[in-house]
Design a protein around this nucleic acid. Structure first.
Lengths: 233, 233
DNA sequence: CAGTGGTCTAGACCACTCG
DNA sequence: GAGTGGTCTAGACCACTGA
């Protein structure tokens, strides 16, 4: 059967967005059911469904069975952030990337680190400190602990040539991660590595990753003032 | 025709993820085509397509026509952030919310603000400064400019009772927004509002929103040290 | 130019949930 | 119990792009 195309899911979404943005459908208002919309637009219900599903994923509408689809009271609540490899991050900003491994030691993980990873008993881990440079100026300082029992290969990795960040991303998959953003002031170590004054404000990203329930690595990334993490809503 | 169900798109995705996480399919490796996978799983191609499309949206795989689907070299590169109403943010963290309107004036917007909004000529705007409190302690300081020609109603809004943040979210839709995160140190004004020392590190969120090409509002939100913005990968 | 993903259709059944 | 979204199927055509 020749399926003559009425509307694409994108054109449907565009029209639905127009009605929301124009105020025709106010926040909280109920949107007609998929069957009605499909009839109105002259397309299959599947097409309407996809348009509405995408709008629900970005938080523009809320959907529940039986009660239908409503315009969200707080339109657009989700932004997606890119989590790049640091080298790419530097190069995308037009800099020449280089890294320096400041520390590379096996140590007993302190309790704060074990807590982040969800480990109860003592554990020997790889403690790596790296300065990431852009055009030979400090871009970011990374303080990382690696649970090498989950990825023994890292003990033989050429971390002078490839940063721990990049080596892990390329060799150790993970299934789950936490990430958080905050601000802090520079302690002595970090200030020295970044060549800034002690107490300077820093943008701090903390990330921990697991493969299933096995912790892989946890790290803090310290960015000096001026660095921005941007995205679009 | 009774469509007997083979696999759901979720079960397909789960199995594909397993193969990636187990190392069976390494980063960069090519994944079989949709037709082959559909045959293997005994389901429709549509089902495989949806599973792979979702995995592409989260950055786990990369898809191109003709060349097929490949495991991403940098697995998982996107995180979604919730952009809440501040009152909800405070209440979700267990605090009692209150806000104080520190400033509410019509002013000529300085050039820095006009630049953020993409306006060339002079423009009179509403300049609002709000302290958001959690359990009567400062939670965040907001410095906002509103292009009231795009939403004249705000001039009559009871901003003492409902914060500018919440009033705008509930009454003025937007189609596009920028958001960025960084760190800075507290200036005198902000330090006073947040009851912290001048120079303290702050977590700074900047957001600008438009309706189509009309600028709506731009603001900076200053969070004291200790505040974290978290999400899951 | 041929292979791969991208998408639409029409129809069906299922699952949740509100009244 | 009935209405609404959630999803699967089988088939078709289209669009991009790399060999």
């Amino acid at each position: 059967m020749t399926a003559r195309q009425g509307h694409s899911h994108q054109s449907v979404q565009k029209e639905l967005l127009r009605r929301i943005h124009s105020g025709e459908w106010l926040p909280g208002a109920r949107i007609p059911g998929e069957v009605d919309l499909a009839e109105e637009f002259g397309c299959a219900r599947t097409t309407v469904n996809r348009a509405l599903r995408q709008m629900a994923e970005t938080g523009i509408v809320e959907r529940k069975r039986r009660s239908g689809t409503h315009v969200a009271l707080t339109p657009i609540r989700k932004a997606t952030l890119q989590i790049p490899i640091i080298r790419q991050e530097v190069e995308e900003r037009g800099g020449v990337y280089r890294h320096m491994l400041v520390s590379n030691r096996r140590e007993q993980a302190p309790s704060s680190i074990r807590a982040r990873l969800g480990l109860s008993g003592p554990a020997e881990m790889l403690h790596l400190q790296t300065v990431h440079l852009s055009d030979n100026r400090p871009h970011m300082f990374e303080d990382r602990w690696v649970n090498f029992s989950a990825s023994p290969d890292i003990l033989e990795a050429p971390l002078e040539d490839i940063s721990p960040n990049e080596w892990l991303v390329r060799h150790v998959p993970y299934s789950r991660g936490d990430i958080s953003f905050s601000a802090c002031s520079a302690s002595g170590d970090v200030a020295e590595a970044l060549e800034i004054a002690i107490g300077s404000p820093l943008f701090l990203v903390e990330r921990t990753t697991w493969m299933n329930t096995t912790p892989i690595t946890t790290l803090k990334m310290f960015y000096p003032e001026g660095f921005r993490f941007s995205t679009t809503l």
